[in-house]
Design a protein around this nucleic acid. Sequence first.
DNA 1: GTCTATAAAATGATAGAC
DNA 2: GTCTATCATTTTATAGAC
Lengths: 184, 184
Amino acid sequence: MRESGVKERILDTASRLFYDQGYHVTGINQIIEEADIARASLYNHFPSKTDLLLAYLDSTHASWFEELDAFLKPIEGPREKLLALFDFRIMRQKRYNYKGCHFNKITAEASDDQAVLARVKAHKERLRKLILELVDQTMYRSILNNEQLADTLFLLLEGGIAVGGMYRSSEAPEKAKQIAEAVL
Amino acid sequence: MRESGVKERILDTASRLFYDQGYHVTGINQIIEEADIARASLYNHFPSKTDLLLAYLDSTHASWFEELDAFLKPIEGPREKLLALFDFRIMRQKRYNYKGCHFNKITAEASDDQAVLARVKAHKERLRKLILELVDQTMYRSILNNEQLADTLFLLLEGGIAVGGMYRSSEAPEKAKQIAEAVL
DNA sequence: GTCTATAAAATGATAGAC
DNA sequence: GTCTATCATTTTATAGAC
Protein backbone atom coordinates (compact mmCIF):
# COMPACT_ATOMS: atom_id res chain seq x y z
CA MET A 1 0.00 0.00 0.00
CA ARG A 2 2.49 2.58 1.12
CA GLU A 3 5.11 1.07 -1.14
CA SER A 4 3.09 1.45 -4.28
CA GLY A 5 2.25 5.03 -3.40
CA VAL A 6 5.91 5.77 -2.91
CA LYS A 7 7.01 4.09 -6.10
CA GLU A 8 4.36 5.89 -8.07
CA ARG A 9 5.35 9.22 -6.54
CA ILE A 10 8.98 8.64 -7.43
CA LEU A 11 8.16 7.80 -11.02
CA ASP A 12 5.72 10.69 -11.41
CA THR A 13 8.19 13.19 -10.04
CA ALA A 14 11.07 11.85 -12.08
CA SER A 15 8.95 11.82 -15.21
CA ARG A 16 7.94 15.40 -14.75
CA LEU A 17 11.49 16.56 -14.11
CA PHE A 18 13.10 14.48 -16.85
CA TYR A 19 10.83 16.03 -19.42
CA ASP A 20 10.67 19.50 -17.97
CA GLN A 21 14.31 20.11 -17.14
CA GLY A 22 16.07 17.26 -18.87
CA TYR A 23 17.44 13.96 -17.69
CA HIS A 24 21.04 14.80 -16.87
CA VAL A 25 20.24 18.06 -15.18
CA THR A 26 17.81 16.31 -12.87
CA GLY A 27 19.62 14.85 -9.88
CA ILE A 28 18.58 12.09 -7.55
CA ASN A 29 18.55 14.65 -4.77
CA GLN A 30 15.92 16.77 -6.44
CA ILE A 31 13.75 13.76 -7.16
CA ILE A 32 13.72 12.51 -3.59
CA GLU A 33 13.13 16.02 -2.29
CA GLU A 34 10.19 16.82 -4.57
CA ALA A 35 8.70 13.36 -4.28
CA ASP A 36 9.16 13.68 -0.52
CA ILE A 37 10.61 10.23 -0.06
CA ALA A 38 13.77 8.84 1.48
CA ARG A 39 16.94 8.41 -0.49
CA ALA A 40 17.14 4.67 0.05
CA SER A 41 13.51 4.23 -0.95
CA LEU A 42 14.36 5.38 -4.41
CA TYR A 43 17.25 2.96 -4.74
CA ASN A 44 15.07 0.24 -3.30
CA HIS A 45 12.54 0.63 -6.09
CA PHE A 46 14.95 1.67 -8.83
CA PRO A 47 18.48 0.22 -8.54
CA SER A 48 19.99 3.03 -10.58
CA LYS A 49 19.08 6.28 -12.26
CA THR A 50 19.10 4.45 -15.58
CA ASP A 51 16.42 2.05 -14.34
CA LEU A 52 14.34 5.06 -13.44
CA LEU A 53 14.87 6.44 -16.93
CA LEU A 54 13.71 3.21 -18.56
CA ALA A 55 10.69 3.06 -16.27
CA TYR A 56 9.90 6.63 -17.30
CA LEU A 57 10.04 5.71 -20.97
CA ASP A 58 7.93 2.59 -20.52
CA SER A 59 5.23 4.31 -18.51
CA THR A 60 5.17 7.29 -20.86
CA HIS A 61 4.85 5.00 -23.86
CA ALA A 62 2.00 3.07 -22.24
CA SER A 63 0.02 6.09 -21.10
CA TRP A 64 0.60 7.86 -24.41
CA PHE A 65 -1.19 5.19 -26.43
CA GLU A 66 -3.83 4.61 -23.78
CA GLU A 67 -4.65 8.27 -23.88
CA LEU A 68 -4.61 8.30 -27.66
CA ASP A 69 -7.02 5.38 -27.84
CA ALA A 70 -9.45 7.19 -25.60
CA PHE A 71 -9.01 10.36 -27.62
CA LEU A 72 -9.70 8.70 -30.97
CA LYS A 73 -12.51 6.45 -29.82
CA PRO A 74 -15.42 8.92 -30.19
CA ILE A 75 -14.13 10.21 -33.53
CA GLU A 76 -15.70 8.66 -36.59
CA GLY A 77 -13.98 7.87 -39.85
CA PRO A 78 -10.32 7.25 -40.65
CA ARG A 79 -9.74 10.70 -42.15
CA GLU A 80 -11.11 12.41 -39.05
CA LYS A 81 -9.04 10.15 -36.83
CA LEU A 82 -5.91 11.01 -38.78
CA LEU A 83 -6.57 14.70 -38.34
CA ALA A 84 -7.38 14.15 -34.68
CA LEU A 85 -3.86 12.80 -34.24
CA PHE A 86 -2.64 16.35 -34.76
CA ASP A 87 -5.12 17.65 -32.21
CA PHE A 88 -4.02 15.01 -29.75
CA ARG A 89 -0.42 15.99 -29.97
CA ILE A 90 -1.16 19.70 -29.91
CA MET A 91 -3.22 19.16 -26.78
CA ARG A 92 -0.39 17.27 -25.13
CA GLN A 93 2.15 19.89 -26.11
CA LYS A 94 -0.01 22.55 -24.56
CA ARG A 95 -0.31 20.51 -21.39
CA TYR A 96 3.45 20.04 -21.13
CA ASN A 97 4.43 23.58 -22.17
CA TYR A 98 5.57 22.95 -25.71
CA LYS A 99 8.87 21.28 -25.07
CA GLY A 100 8.50 18.86 -27.93
CA CYS A 101 8.17 15.11 -28.12
CA HIS A 102 9.14 13.20 -24.97
CA PHE A 103 10.95 10.59 -27.01
CA ASN A 104 12.73 13.02 -29.26
CA LYS A 105 13.86 14.90 -26.20
CA ILE A 106 15.31 11.92 -24.40
CA THR A 107 17.09 10.77 -27.54
CA ALA A 108 19.00 14.03 -27.55
CA GLU A 109 20.28 13.31 -24.05
CA ALA A 110 20.69 9.58 -23.68
CA SER A 111 21.88 9.12 -27.19
CA ASP A 112 24.17 6.15 -26.87
CA ASP A 113 22.09 3.96 -24.62
CA GLN A 114 20.70 1.16 -26.78
CA ALA A 115 17.92 0.38 -24.33
CA VAL A 116 16.71 3.96 -24.68
CA LEU A 117 16.98 4.01 -28.46
CA ALA A 118 15.08 0.74 -28.78
CA ARG A 119 12.19 2.13 -26.74
CA VAL A 120 12.10 5.36 -28.71
CA LYS A 121 12.05 3.50 -31.99
CA ALA A 122 9.33 1.11 -30.80
CA HIS A 123 7.20 4.06 -29.75
CA LYS A 124 7.52 5.85 -33.07
CA GLU A 125 7.04 2.73 -35.14
CA ARG A 126 3.82 2.00 -33.36
CA LEU A 127 2.55 5.45 -34.20
CA ARG A 128 3.63 5.09 -37.81
CA LYS A 129 1.89 1.75 -38.07
CA LEU A 130 -1.30 3.20 -36.63
CA ILE A 131 -1.21 5.99 -39.19
CA LEU A 132 -0.71 3.53 -42.03
CA GLU A 133 -3.65 1.43 -40.85
CA LEU A 134 -5.88 4.49 -40.83
CA VAL A 135 -4.66 5.55 -44.26
CA ASP A 136 -5.43 2.07 -45.59
CA GLN A 137 -9.00 2.54 -44.40
CA THR A 138 -9.43 5.69 -46.47
CA MET A 139 -10.24 5.66 -50.16
CA TYR A 140 -7.32 7.88 -50.88
CA ARG A 141 -5.82 8.11 -54.37
CA SER A 142 -3.19 10.51 -55.70
CA ILE A 143 0.43 10.77 -56.79
CA LEU A 144 1.36 9.31 -53.41
CA ASN A 145 0.69 5.69 -52.55
CA ASN A 146 -0.74 4.77 -49.16
CA GLU A 147 2.61 4.23 -47.50
CA GLN A 148 3.92 7.53 -48.80
CA LEU A 149 0.82 9.31 -47.59
CA ALA A 150 1.20 7.70 -44.18
CA ASP A 151 4.84 8.79 -44.08
CA THR A 152 3.84 12.28 -45.12
CA LEU A 153 1.42 12.54 -42.22
CA PHE A 154 3.89 10.97 -39.83
CA LEU A 155 6.67 13.34 -40.85
CA LEU A 156 4.38 16.39 -40.77
CA LEU A 157 3.39 15.36 -37.27
CA GLU A 158 6.97 14.80 -36.09
CA GLY A 159 8.23 17.90 -37.85
CA GLY A 160 5.46 20.03 -36.42
CA ILE A 161 6.05 18.84 -32.88
CA ALA A 162 9.83 19.17 -33.20
CA VAL A 163 9.62 22.73 -34.52
CA GLY A 164 6.96 23.52 -31.95
CA GLY A 165 9.37 22.34 -29.30
CA MET A 166 12.14 24.55 -30.62
CA TYR A 167 9.80 27.55 -30.88
CA ARG A 168 7.89 26.77 -27.71
CA SER A 169 4.69 27.23 -29.61
CA SER A 170 1.80 25.35 -31.20
CA GLU A 171 2.14 27.27 -34.46
CA ALA A 172 4.09 24.62 -36.37
CA PRO A 173 1.86 21.66 -35.45
CA GLU A 174 -1.22 23.76 -36.24
CA LYS A 175 0.18 24.47 -39.68
CA ALA A 176 1.04 20.81 -40.06
CA LYS A 177 -2.57 19.95 -39.41
CA GLN A 178 -3.80 22.44 -42.00
CA ILE A 179 -1.50 20.92 -44.56
CA ALA A 180 -2.73 17.46 -43.65
CA GLU A 181 -6.30 18.64 -44.14
CA ALA A 182 -5.45 19.91 -47.60
CA VAL A 183 -3.61 16.75 -48.53
CA LEU A 184 -6.12 14.24 -47.24
CA MET B 1 48.89 33.08 -33.24
CA ARG B 2 48.99 30.45 -30.57
CA GLU B 3 46.01 32.00 -28.90
CA SER B 4 43.77 31.69 -31.90
CA GLY B 5 44.87 28.11 -32.43
CA VAL B 6 44.00 27.32 -28.86
CA LYS B 7 40.66 29.05 -28.93
CA GLU B 8 39.76 27.30 -32.15
CA ARG B 9 40.78 23.94 -30.72
CA ILE B 10 38.65 24.50 -27.63
CA LEU B 11 35.61 25.41 -29.69
CA ASP B 12 36.09 22.55 -32.14
CA THR B 13 36.46 20.01 -29.38
CA ALA B 14 33.54 21.37 -27.39
CA SER B 15 31.36 21.47 -30.51
CA ARG B 16 32.12 17.87 -31.33
CA LEU B 17 31.43 16.68 -27.80
CA PHE B 18 28.32 18.80 -27.25
CA TYR B 19 26.72 17.30 -30.33
CA ASP B 20 28.08 13.82 -29.99
CA GLN B 21 27.55 13.16 -26.31
CA GLY B 22 25.35 16.02 -25.24
CA TYR B 23 25.98 19.30 -23.49
CA HIS B 24 25.44 18.40 -19.86
CA VAL B 25 27.27 15.13 -20.04
CA THR B 26 30.33 16.85 -21.46
CA GLY B 27 32.48 18.20 -18.65
CA ILE B 28 35.06 20.94 -18.74
CA ASN B 29 37.65 18.33 -17.82
CA GLN B 30 36.99 16.29 -20.93
CA ILE B 31 37.13 19.34 -23.15
CA ILE B 32 40.49 20.52 -21.88
CA GLU B 33 41.87 17.02 -22.04
CA GLU B 34 40.80 16.28 -25.61
CA ALA B 35 41.63 19.76 -26.84
CA ASP B 36 44.97 19.37 -25.08
CA ILE B 37 44.92 22.80 -23.51
CA ALA B 38 45.26 24.12 -19.98
CA ARG B 39 42.30 24.51 -17.74
CA ALA B 40 42.75 28.26 -17.29
CA SER B 41 43.12 28.76 -21.03
CA LEU B 42 39.58 27.66 -21.48
CA TYR B 43 38.26 30.06 -18.87
CA ASN B 44 40.41 32.78 -20.37
CA HIS B 45 38.72 32.46 -23.73
CA PHE B 46 35.29 31.46 -22.47
CA PRO B 47 34.33 32.87 -19.06
CA SER B 48 31.85 30.08 -18.42
CA LYS B 49 30.55 26.87 -19.91
CA THR B 50 27.48 28.75 -21.05
CA ASP B 51 29.62 31.15 -23.08
CA LEU B 52 31.16 28.14 -24.75
CA LEU B 53 27.71 26.82 -25.52
CA LEU B 54 26.63 30.07 -27.14
CA ALA B 55 29.85 30.22 -29.15
CA TYR B 56 29.13 26.67 -30.30
CA LEU B 57 25.66 27.64 -31.48
CA ASP B 58 26.87 30.77 -33.24
CA SER B 59 29.69 29.04 -35.08
CA THR B 60 27.50 26.09 -36.01
CA HIS B 61 24.84 28.43 -37.35
CA ALA B 62 27.38 30.37 -39.42
CA SER B 63 29.14 27.36 -40.89
CA TRP B 64 25.82 25.63 -41.57
CA PHE B 65 24.60 28.33 -43.92
CA GLU B 66 28.03 28.91 -45.43
CA GLU B 67 28.20 25.26 -46.28
CA LEU B 68 24.66 25.26 -47.58
CA ASP B 69 25.37 28.22 -49.87
CA ALA B 70 28.34 26.40 -51.37
CA PHE B 71 26.25 23.26 -51.71
CA LEU B 72 23.38 24.95 -53.54
CA LYS B 73 25.49 27.23 -55.72
CA PRO B 74 26.16 24.78 -58.59
CA ILE B 75 22.57 23.52 -58.61
CA GLU B 76 20.29 25.13 -61.16
CA GLY B 77 16.64 25.93 -60.73
CA PRO B 78 14.58 26.52 -57.57
CA ARG B 79 12.94 23.09 -57.62
CA GLU B 80 16.31 21.36 -57.80
CA LYS B 81 17.68 23.57 -55.06
CA LEU B 82 14.72 22.72 -52.84
CA LEU B 83 15.33 19.03 -53.35
CA ALA B 84 19.04 19.53 -52.77
CA LEU B 85 18.20 20.85 -49.32
CA PHE B 86 17.25 17.31 -48.41
CA ASP B 87 20.51 15.98 -49.83
CA PHE B 88 22.42 18.58 -47.89
CA ARG B 89 20.91 17.58 -44.60
CA ILE B 90 21.21 13.87 -45.32
CA MET B 91 24.88 14.40 -46.12
CA ARG B 92 25.43 16.24 -42.86
CA GLN B 93 23.56 13.61 -40.87
CA LYS B 94 25.77 10.95 -42.36
CA ARG B 95 28.86 12.94 -41.46
CA TYR B 96 27.73 13.38 -37.88
CA ASN B 97 26.40 9.85 -37.38
CA TYR B 98 22.68 10.51 -37.59
CA LYS B 99 22.12 12.14 -34.25
CA GLY B 100 19.60 14.61 -35.58
CA CYS B 101 19.58 18.36 -35.92
CA HIS B 102 22.18 20.21 -33.84
CA PHE B 103 19.66 22.84 -32.86
CA ASN B 104 16.89 20.43 -32.04
CA LYS B 105 19.33 18.50 -29.90
CA ILE B 106 20.50 21.44 -27.85
CA THR B 107 16.94 22.62 -27.32
CA ALA B 108 16.22 19.34 -25.58
CA GLU B 109 19.03 20.01 -23.13
CA ALA B 110 19.27 23.74 -22.56
CA SER B 111 15.57 24.23 -22.70
CA ASP B 112 15.09 27.18 -20.42
CA ASP B 113 17.96 29.34 -21.53
CA GLN B 114 16.46 32.18 -23.56
CA ALA B 115 19.76 32.95 -25.28
CA VAL B 116 19.83 29.38 -26.58
CA LEU B 117 16.20 29.37 -27.67
CA ALA B 118 16.61 32.66 -29.53
CA ARG B 119 19.54 31.27 -31.52
CA VAL B 120 17.71 28.08 -32.34
CA LYS B 121 14.67 29.99 -33.55
CA ALA B 122 16.78 32.38 -35.63
CA HIS B 123 18.51 29.43 -37.27
CA LYS B 124 15.27 27.69 -38.19
CA GLU B 125 13.54 30.85 -39.33
CA ARG B 126 16.38 31.59 -41.70
CA LEU B 127 15.99 28.15 -43.24
CA ARG B 128 12.25 28.54 -43.51
CA LYS B 129 12.67 31.91 -45.19
CA LEU B 130 15.13 30.46 -47.67
CA ILE B 131 12.68 27.70 -48.55
CA LEU B 132 9.87 30.20 -49.05
CA GLU B 133 12.05 32.31 -51.37
CA LEU B 134 12.85 29.27 -53.46
CA VAL B 135 9.19 28.24 -53.58
CA ASP B 136 8.27 31.74 -54.73
CA GLN B 137 10.65 31.29 -57.64
CA THR B 138 8.84 28.17 -58.81
CA MET B 139 5.69 28.27 -60.91
CA TYR B 140 3.95 26.03 -58.47
CA ARG B 141 0.14 25.82 -58.31
CA SER B 142 -2.06 23.41 -56.38
CA ILE B 143 -4.36 23.14 -53.39
CA LEU B 144 -1.54 24.55 -51.28
CA ASN B 145 -0.46 28.16 -51.56
CA ASN B 146 3.23 29.05 -51.65
CA GLU B 147 3.58 29.54 -47.93
CA GLN B 148 1.86 26.24 -47.21
CA LEU B 149 4.09 24.48 -49.70
CA ALA B 150 7.15 26.03 -48.09
CA ASP B 151 5.93 24.92 -44.69
CA THR B 152 5.28 21.45 -46.04
CA LEU B 153 8.85 21.17 -47.25
CA PHE B 154 10.22 22.68 -44.07
CA LEU B 155 8.24 20.30 -41.88
CA LEU B 156 9.12 17.29 -44.02
CA LEU B 157 12.74 18.27 -43.66
CA GLU B 158 12.57 18.78 -39.91
CA GLY B 159 10.46 15.69 -39.39
CA GLY B 160 12.76 13.57 -41.50
CA ILE B 161 15.86 14.71 -39.66
CA ALA B 162 14.19 14.36 -36.26
CA VAL B 163 13.00 10.83 -36.96
CA GLY B 164 16.36 10.01 -38.54
CA GLY B 165 17.98 11.14 -35.31
CA MET B 166 15.73 8.93 -33.24
CA TYR B 167 16.30 5.95 -35.55
CA ARG B 168 19.97 6.70 -36.18
CA SER B 169 19.34 6.29 -39.87
CA SER B 170 18.90 8.21 -43.10
CA GLU B 171 15.72 6.33 -43.98
CA ALA B 172 13.26 8.99 -42.82
CA PRO B 173 14.96 11.96 -44.52
CA GLU B 174 15.30 9.90 -47.72
CA LYS B 175 11.59 9.22 -47.64
CA ALA B 176 10.95 12.88 -46.93
CA LYS B 177 12.85 13.76 -50.07
CA GLN B 178 10.86 11.31 -52.17
CA ILE B 179 7.65 12.84 -50.91
CA ALA B 180 8.98 16.31 -51.70
CA GLU B 181 9.80 15.15 -55.22
CA ALA B 182 6.25 13.92 -55.69
CA VAL B 183 4.74 17.07 -54.26
CA LEU B 184 6.87 19.61 -56.12
C1' DG C 1 10.75 -0.91 3.82
C1' DT C 2 12.26 3.42 5.33
C1' DC C 3 15.48 6.28 7.45
C1' DT C 4 20.05 9.23 8.16
C1' DA C 5 24.82 9.59 7.33
C1' DT C 6 28.34 9.20 4.29
C1' DA C 7 31.40 7.62 0.65
C1' DA C 8 33.90 8.27 -3.80
C1' DA C 9 34.02 10.59 -7.86
C1' DA C 10 33.06 14.36 -10.95
C1' DT C 11 31.28 18.95 -11.58
C1' DG C 12 32.18 24.17 -12.82
C1' DA C 13 35.18 27.61 -11.52
C1' DT C 14 39.29 30.28 -9.25
C1' DA C 15 44.15 31.51 -7.35
C1' DG C 16 48.60 32.44 -7.96
C1' DA C 17 53.22 31.10 -10.04
C1' DC C 18 55.63 31.60 -14.33
C1' DG D 1 48.48 33.93 -21.96
C1' DT D 2 49.41 29.57 -20.10
C1' DC D 3 50.28 26.60 -16.41
C1' DT D 4 49.36 23.53 -11.97
C1' DA D 5 47.01 23.04 -7.78
C1' DT D 6 42.92 23.44 -5.49
C1' DC D 7 38.13 24.92 -3.88
C1' DA D 8 33.33 24.31 -2.91
C1' DT D 9 29.41 21.76 -4.78
C1' DT D 10 27.06 18.32 -6.57
C1' DT D 11 26.84 13.91 -8.56
C1' DT D 12 25.27 8.73 -8.12
C1' DA D 13 25.27 5.25 -4.98
C1' DT D 14 25.95 2.46 -0.44
C1' DA D 15 26.03 1.23 4.78
C1' DG D 16 23.94 0.34 8.77
C1' DA D 17 20.41 1.77 12.36
C1' DC D 18 15.50 1.44 13.19
